[in-house]
Write a protein that binds this DNA or RNA. Sequence first.
DNA 1: CCCTGAAATTAGGTTCAACCTAATTTAGGT
DNA 2: ACCTAAATTAGGTTGAACCTAATTTCAGGG
Lengths: 143, 143
Amino acid sequence: MPSRLTDREAEYLKVIFNLLSKKDAVGSLEVASAMGVSCATASETLKKLYEKGMLRREPWRGVSLSERGIMEVNRILRNHRVFETYAYEVLSISLEDACECANRVELYLPEKIVDSMCRLLGHPKRCPHKNSIPEGSSCCLEK
Amino acid sequence: MPSRLTDREAEYLKVIFNLLSKKDAVGSLEVASAMGVSCATASETLKKLYEKGMLRREPWRGVSLSERGIMEVNRILRNHRVFETYAYEVLSISLEDACECANRVELYLPEKIVDSMCRLLGHPKRCPHKNSIPEGSSCCLEK
DNA sequence: CCCTGAAATTAGGTTCAACCTAATTTAGGT
DNA sequence: ACCTAAATTAGGTTGAACCTAATTTCAGGG
């Protein structure tokens, strides 16, 4: 039933997460302008994300992330930041390039890869930008 | 004008490449069955890939890869095999998992990442399956 | 040499994601 | 109570990736 997120929906989720850092609910209009899309499109997508269990929603009010939404964003952010850190620290990619590379793959990286990179890095708490890296599931810590 | 390949088109290209290892031209029917799709769909997609400059085509005969098609498949294969080798050798992922992980990311890996992994591995000629790894552009070899 | 059958292509259509513009609805402040 | 800005719904469009049902083409057997 949950039916997986599309890539585009994952984008929306990331943007919503960022907007939420400054307030505790965001409206369609804000999402629309952050995504460069009409308000109607944003509204529809928010509904879909809600139906997929990613958002908490008070119609006419605004949305925030549900438990599952938070997990999903954390997964993406973790993928991004671990990969970026690894690319920068181990693969000697410039920070700027590492970040851009991370953007390209963050939605597709298997957990096994990310956990392994995380382990080799010694389970860092922050990426080179000093943003915090969400923890992985327990198996990341297992030897 | 060339207009980038869709993910699905890249899949077709890989399949075509594999079919070509046994013969020197493949027909719609073969591609269709390898992709699990109707013959009409395969035929259409072959036409699109041809229009995008990826295939050589003699209508009613069959297709083979064009120069650009070969480059594209090589890029994907290189991404796959370098990543897989790196995951296996450095990230300690089982060979089977490494291969599966490579399948998930092979279309999205930036060249910089792959070249860096390739360098750290000492520019291996073959992946753990003993398949040959296509060479990268010259800059892979530069220190 | 034609004729037929298998393979290829074209015609015409569906579904779904992601957009849009133009209504329409609604909640909140004056 | 009213007005307006924000949110939603209605009704479309486009493009990717499929499909089934014609139709076309070529190559080999009679």
